[in-house]
Design a protein around this nucleic acid. Structure first.
Length: 291
DNA sequence: AAGGATACCTGAATGC
DNA sequence: TGCATTCAGGTATCCT
């Protein structure tokens, strides 16, 4: 569920607040989350934050980087201890942050698995209640050796053109919805935006990719771009545990078209939205207007 | 090789 | 009521 818009929202926040900070210490509470030697990043200063699909890269000035995937429930939250009650958009010590659905906790909490201590009274917390995410500490030149980054397909707003998208769709023998979510084919799209994009394009998620017409493929490209753009504009979808780099919530969950809307009326024609499983994932669609 | 099924994990929702 | 089961999902891995 953290998909391109959510991860980009985090990246923008980290770029604004984290860049320029030096890592002074790393506290690892759950070892399996971190791979590589944390000693290699101590003393390193953050020079930039990049995103590839749903993956994040925090670049340091000492030749190392942090490659991060938050998977379903990871959170990266920046906090700076405010001195002298100065007004700041950065969360304060006592501020509670959404952990999962209706649960709010201060930092750190039982789901905080890694704490990066930074200079200038700041810290970066990694929380993850399902513990699926990972943080890899590697040398700059080793990023492209990481399987996840190496195998990523082209992505929307970057290197995926509508022509490339058409070729990928036409070549695939799978069902269109799982194809949209296959990171090796197209990166950045997950369950929420695949469901809503297909709805916007009026395409039945069960159809085989290679039988879609050129026009349908073009519409789908435009529709997926459209919902991704809206998701980013609204700061992502926070229905489960997504929060931005300052612990704030997004608003796209208030604008879901069909995702999670089983039993509710279709926003286009009022038919009841159905839920089925495709590729083992929840799939929501309108049975009458998605052909 | 591509595509499908399963594991990973835990809180919430559901079942009886 | 309370205990057990099911469900959610992005990869990683195994299997065909």
């Amino acid at each position: 569920m953290p998909e391109l818009p959510e991860v980009e929202t985090i990246r923008l926040g980290l770029e604004k607040h984290l860049v320029g900070h030096k890592i002074t210490d790393v506290e690892i509470k759950l070892r399996k989350i971190v791979q590589g030697d944390e000693k290699n990043i101590i003393g390193g200063k953050v020079t930039g934050v990049r995103r590839f699909g749903k993956g994040l890269v925090i670049d340091l000035d000492n030749g190392y980087l942090l490659a991060i995937h938050i998977k379903l429930t990871g959170q990266l939250i920046y906090r700076k201890v405010s001195k002298g009650g100065k007004v700041s958009e950065v969360p304060k010590e006592e501020e509670k942050i959404k952990v999962i659905r209706g649960t709010y906790e201060v930092l750190p909490n039982k789901w905080t698995h890694v704490i990066f201590h930074l200079d200038k009274d700041a810290s970066l917390y990694y929380n993850d209640f399902r513990q699926f995410g990972w943080i890899k500490i590697v040398k700059q030149e080793e990023l492209q050796k990481l399987v996840f980054f190496k195998e990523l397909g082209p992505e929307f707003f970057k290197d995926l053109t509508s022509e490339k998208f058409r070729d990928i769709v036409k070549k695939s023998k799978t069902v269109i919805k799982p194809l949209l979510m296959d990171q090796k084919k197209i990166s950045g799209v997950g369950n929420i935006y695949a469901n809503d994009g297909l709805f916007d394009a009026k395409i039945d998620p069960k159809r085989k990719a290679n039988i879609l017409s050129d026009k349908e493929i073009e519409n789908l490209f435009t529709s997926v771009e459209k919902v991704l753009k809206l998701g980013l504009k609204l700061g992502g979808a926070s229905e489960l545990s997504f929060v931005n780099a300052l612990g704030g919530e997004g608003k796209y969950q208030e604008h879901f078209l069909v995702y999670g809307q089983e039993g509710k009326p279709c926003p286009r024609d009022g038919s009841i939205i159905q839920k089925i499983a495709l590729g083992g994932r929840g799939t929501y669609f309108c049975p009458t207007c998605q052909k």
